[in-house]
């Protein structure tokens, strides 16, 4: 019997979570909701991304980013969070690393908030509800920006 690896890999779709073969993009997820953290983590892991850290508020997010740096390629950042909101955390991360790839993910789509985040250096802004396609498209766009 032929094992799966005996078949040529020619039909296998390339996973978009890899920056090079065997080398995944490393992601930090900042969100106060356990559900959303799991949701984002599941979508990204299924495409080969590696979730290297999670944080439940902005303050913890900034700390984790500094700890992980430079071994982190992408941050997904919620906005409405206790202790420190996501826009403040974005500002602090960009202050620390001006090339950081931060993607905002929020239920709030207010124009001025989106604009403010993008001006501050966020690479993209995803408004909930989340679906797989939307998340992956925006994240790939941000990583290639």
């Amino acid at each position: 019997m032929k094992a799966k690896q005996d078949f040529p890999a020619i039909n296998e779709r390339e996973q978009i979570g890899l920056k090079a073969p065997g080398e995944p993009y490393r992601v930090l997820i900042v969100d106060d909701s356990m559900f959303v953290t799991k949701q984002i983590s599941q979508i990204l892991s299924s495409e080969g991304f590696e979730v290297v850290g999670t944080a439940a508020d902005g303050d913890e997010g900034v700390e984790k980013y500094k700890e992980l740096f430079p071994n982190v390629d992408l941050v997904t950042m919620d906005i409405t969070m206790p202790t420190m909101d996501g826009v403040t955390a974005l500002e602090k991360i960009i202050e620390f690393d001006k090339n950081a790839c931060v993607v905002m993910i929020s239920a709030l789509g207010k124009q001025d908030l989106v604009k403010k985040s993008l001006l501050m250096g966020a690479k993209n802004y995803i408004v909930k509800p989340l679906d797989r396609k939307k998340v992956l498209e925006r994240i790939v766009m941000s990583l290639n920006a």
């Binding site: 709030l108 789509g109 207010k110 909930k128």
Partner: peptide
């Protein structure tokens, strides 16, 4: 459980977030 509660609060958060965005506009 914790995940169940997080799921319900997220539903509330999505609805309120969208409504606040509309009101903001």
């Amino acid at each position: 459980n914790d995940m169940g509660r997080a799921t319900i609060t997220e539903l509330a958060n999505m609805i309120t977030g969208q409504a606040v965005t509309k009101l903001h506009n």
